[in-house]
Computed example of a mutant assay.
Amino acid sequence: MADWFRQKSWSKVDEEYFFTKLGRARKDGRAQYLKIQAIELIETKNEKLLDVAESLIHKLFSEYPDDKFNRPGALVGLGNIYQLRNDNDRAIECYKEAIDFEIIYPQVRTQAYIYFSELVIKQEKVNLYDTVENILMDKIPGTLFPIEKYKGYSILSIINNYNHNIEKAAKFETLAEQNASKETSGLRYHKYLGIVKDRDSWLDKLVRKS
């Protein structure tokens, strides 16, 4: 049986069960439970459940405004909701807010920078290319996961080709390919965590096209 804060449905019974459990939980854990439950509902991609997830995230923001640890992840979740609704401008704003928050609180880390960068490229927001490049150049050295490096370097290749920096673009394309081909993460106890299992066809196509 799934944890009470990992429900994939939201009937009246589900809702009452969740909020009863939430009310009995430690106060310092409630923001996290709201975030996790919202993410579970977002993963269903069901339109009605996205509405519920959005309400849970806004509840987190309004009732636990001083919670620093869960805010970036909740912002990423909100960005994912907007992206699923094709409200891409609002999604970009949420991802950027999460990135900016992580600058102030670097002990909290999400994949907001990857989501932000991917969406900027997909939407061809060329006015944000310099911002994306700066963010990726700052973030990529600190990640251990090949999949993040593969995506990040692919995006850097696309941006540098757009800016006619052909040599740099080729270097980033090579780095992206190297990370896409890695069979292990290099982590001792999680050898296969964060490796590239399925390549992004749209990203590969843009790299080759550029």
Rank of each mutant, 00 (worst) to 15 (best):
L78N: 13
E148F: 13
Q178V: 10
N46P: 05
V207N: 06
R6Y: 03
S201R: 08
K8W: 00
Y192W: 06
W10V: 01
M1Y: 07
Q32L: 14
R109T: 00
Q123C: 08
G73Q: 06
I135M: 06
E177L: 11
P106C: 09
M1F: 01
K197A: 04
D100C: 00
F61R: 07
Y33E: 03
R24V: 03
Q37Y: 06
S154W: 02
E177C: 03
E173P: 00
A170V: 12
A74P: 04
N46S: 12
R188Y: 09
A2L: 10
N70E: 14
F61I: 12
T174P: 01
T131F: 00
V196M: 03
N160F: 05
P146Q: 03
N70H: 11
T20K: 15
A170L: 11
N160Q: 13
R188S: 11
P106R: 13
R199H: 08
L50S: 06
E173F: 01
R208P: 00
K191E: 14
M137S: 08
I57N: 07
F172N: 10
N165H: 12
E177F: 03
L78G: 11
G23T: 06
W202E: 13
E43K: 15
I36A: 01
K27D: 13
K171N: 11
A170C: 00
H58V: 11
E124F: 10
K205A: 12
Q123L: 11
D100N: 11
L49Q: 14
G79S: 09
Y82K: 14
K12R: 14
K35V: 13
K35C: 13
I159A: 03
T184W: 01
Y17S: 15
N70L: 04
L175N: 01
D138M: 09
E47W: 01
I158P: 04
K125W: 07
D87Q: 15
Y17K: 14
Y17T: 14
